[in-house]
């Protein structure tokens, strides 16, 4: 007996499980979970075809709270498991949930390779700049000088930017979001899902216990307008109150600068239009850091090419066209044989 879940009737609630959610109260993960559950019914994918794969860490508890298929694996390796899932069944919609420690420290290698291969999955990296589950050690994205149990006098290694890493690894879809922005996150997730190939979304996630407020500089309601820029393909790169400020290429350099049209001879025409197919622009936007620049949020880069999964399917189809499928005897008897008779 087969039960097909009628798509149109599904609501975010249908994607919630009966498992008690075990994140700390006030953790940013709750908001992201809510946004993902809100996105799912709108994807037009049967619930049974959705798989959440995670590694280890606070964020990696995510699959237990999604009423889809879910696989909570081992530290850092979710991209490898997810690749296997896609190799076995390319029709599944596979979502990887990872964190800055899981995805960029122990699992950095796998993240690099799933992005470069362009396996058709969605990767949500919750960046809270700290190790939560192991109780607060600094992570590869922690800012220089972060004091933690393992760095009592401040961390001394330079942090890594997940978004810049993804762009450098050859990702063809790179986006950024903020945990609390319920208005924007579902759209980012939908775009990530629509992109055939590896889609990478970095989400700034507040760890209220071990790293509270580390992003407030640009996530605070009062600061948002001046310290976030929401990029949209084809639209001018403007931010600030009423979009008063904008970005342009600083004359005589390769850098961006903040300008205000109507001041110092700058006009609206000087403001860059966002081109999400430009790798160069995506890198410039990804590199912007507060306080001097606004944090770029939205789809920074989307420039699809054929996915790894599609290429594998194509090679298999070509091989099958050349040789009849599954003739075991023909295989065993291929090459040189001889007969010994009685």
């Amino acid at each position: 007996m087969n039960v097909t879940t009628p798509l149109e009737k599904l609501t975010p609630k249908d994607f919630a499980t009966d498992q008690e959610v075990r994140w700390c109260p006030g953790c940013g993960d709750y908001a992201i979970l809510k946004a993902v559950q809100k996105t799912m019914p709108e994807l037009d994918v049967p619930r049974e075809n959705i798989v959440f794969v995670s590694g280890i860490g606070c964020s990696s508890r995510f699959p237990y709270y999604m009423a889809t298929y879910g696989f909570h694996t081992i530290h850092g390796r979710a991209p490898a498991f997810a690749t296997g899932v896609k190799l076995a069944n390319p029709d599944l919609s596979v979502w990887i949930v990872t964190g800055d420690g899981d995805g960029l420290s122990i699992g950095g290698n796998h993240l690099l390779h799933i992005l470069r291969r362009n396996v058709d999955v969605q990767i949500l990296l919750f960046n809270n700049e700290i190790y939560g589950l192991t109780k607060g050690q600094y992570s590869p994205t922690s800012r220089l000088g972060t004091r933690s149990p393992s760095t009592p006098t401040g961390s001394i290694d330079n942090p890594l930017s997940p978004t810049e890493f993804a762009l450098g690894a050859g990702a063809r879809f790179v986006a950024r979001g903020i945990d609390t922005q319920q208005k924007y996150l579902p759209d980012l997730f939908k775009r990530a899902h629509a992109h055939a190939g590896a889609s990478f979304v970095e989400i700034f996630q507040n760890c209220i216990v071990y790293n509270d407020g580390v992003f407030t500089e640009f996530t605070d309601k009062a600061a948002a307008e001046d310290h976030q820029i929401h990029v949209e393909h084809g639209k001018p790169l403007r931010f600030g109150k009423d979009g008063a400020k904008g970005l342009r290429v600083k004359p005589g350099s390769f850098d961006l600068e903040i300008v205000t049209p109507s001041e110092n001879g700058v006009t609206d025409a000087d403001i860059l239009l966002h081109d999400e197919t430009s790798h160069t622009l995506a890198n410039l936007l990804a590199a912007m850091q507060p306080p001097h620049f606004p944090m770029a949020i939205g789809v920074l880069y989307c420039n699809p090419i054929e996915s790894y999964t599609a290429r594998i399917s194509q090679q298999i189809e070509e091989a099958k066209a050349k040789a009849p499928l599954g003739d075991l005897n023909a295989l065993l008897q291929s090459g040189h044989t001889w007969r010994v008779s009685d």
Binding site: V51, R77, T83, N109, H110, L112, H113
Partner: peptide, 25 residues
């Protein structure tokens, strides 16, 4: 042509993990 998908992974760990993911699916 026998429906075998081969995957040269980035390391030994990824290889076994991908195999487990494939069995899961």
């Amino acid at each position: 042509s026998f429906g075998v998908v081969t995957f040269q992974a980035e390391d030994e760990i990824a290889a076994v993990c991908a195999a487990i993911g494939a069995s899961y699916a």
